[in-house]
C-alpha cells in the first residue's frame, strides 16, 4: 500500500552541492519505510515548499554542510505558514555553523527559526527516523504502516545499516574539508 507511507521531502539547501550524504539519506529513509522525495542539491526554500505541497508531505528534512545554513534558512518556517503548510515538520541537520560554535547554541538558533529538530553531523540516523515517526504520529496521527513489524523482523539488519550510514555520514564531513572534485569545476 504505497499510499499509506508517509511522504518526506529531503534536499541540500542553498548553494551547497554536497551530494553524497544526500543520496545516503534518500536510501536510508526509504529503507525506513518513508516515501522520500529527494530534491537533490542546491535546493531553494521555495522548491522545498512547492514539493511538499504537491506531495502532501509530512516533513521537510533540510541538509546543509557548507556553513551558510543560517542565511539559507532565514524565513523558512514563515514561508511554510504563508503557503498553508502550517503543521509541517521541519528538521535540519549537518554542519550548521562555521567554526567552533557549541552545538547547543546552534540548536537554539535554529529552533527559534521554527525548526522542530536540529541535528549535528554525527547523529545516528536511526534515532532521527525514530523521532520522525514519533513526531508524525503526534502531529498527523499516523505513522508509516507496517514499519514496526518490519523493524522487528529486520532489527539486526537495520542496526548495521544505520551504523554504516552513520560512518558514511562522517565521510561526508570529510568532503567539506576536501571539496569534491565531481561537483566543482
Amino acid at each position: 500500500m504505497e499510499n499509506q507511507k508517509d511522504t518526506i521531502v529531503i534536499g541540500v539547501i542553498g548553494s551547497d552541492c554536497h551530494s553524497v550524504g544526500n543520496k545516503i539519506l534518500e536510501m536510508f529513509f526509504t529503507s525506513e519505510g518513508f516515501k522520500v522525495v529527494n530534491l537533490g542539491v542546491m535546493v531553494s526554500q521555495q522548491e522545498f515548499v512547492d514539493a511538499a505541497i504537491e506531495t502532501n508531505a509530512r516533513a521537510i528534512l533540510v541538509s546543509s554542510l557548507y556553513g551558510h545554513a543560517e542565511i539559507d534558512c532565514q524565513g523558512f518556517r514563515e514561508l511554510c505558514i504563508e503557503k498553508g503548510l502550517d503543521p509541517i515538520i521541519l528538521y535540519i541537520g549537518g554542519n550548521l555553523a562555521v567554526g567552533k560554535t557549541p552545538f547547543s547554541v546552534v540548536e537554539e538558533k535554529f529552533k527559534k527559526m521554527g525548526f522542530d529538530r536540529v541535528f549535528p553531523p554525527d547523529i545516528d540516523l536511526k534515532q532521527v527516523a525514530e523521532l520522525l515517526r514519533q513526531d508524525i504520529k503526534e502531529k498527523f496521527g499516523s505513522c508509516s504502516k507496517g514499519q514496526e513489524a518490519r523493524d522487528r523482523a529486520n532489527q539486526a539488519g537495520l542496526e548495521n545499516q544505520s551504523q554504516a550510514a552513520n560512518q558514511i555520514g562522517q565521510g561526508d564531513k570529510n568532503d567539506r574539508k576536501e571539496p569534491e572534485g565531481s561537483t566543482a569545476e
Binding site: S15, C17, H18, M42, Y66, P179, A184, E185
Partner: peptide, 11 residues
C-alpha cells in the same frame, strides 16, 4: 551563475 564553495555552478 552561482558561486558555491565548490566552485562556479549553473542553475
Amino acid at each position: 551563475e552561482v558561486y558555491t564553495p565548490q566552485g562556479k555552478v549553473y542553475m
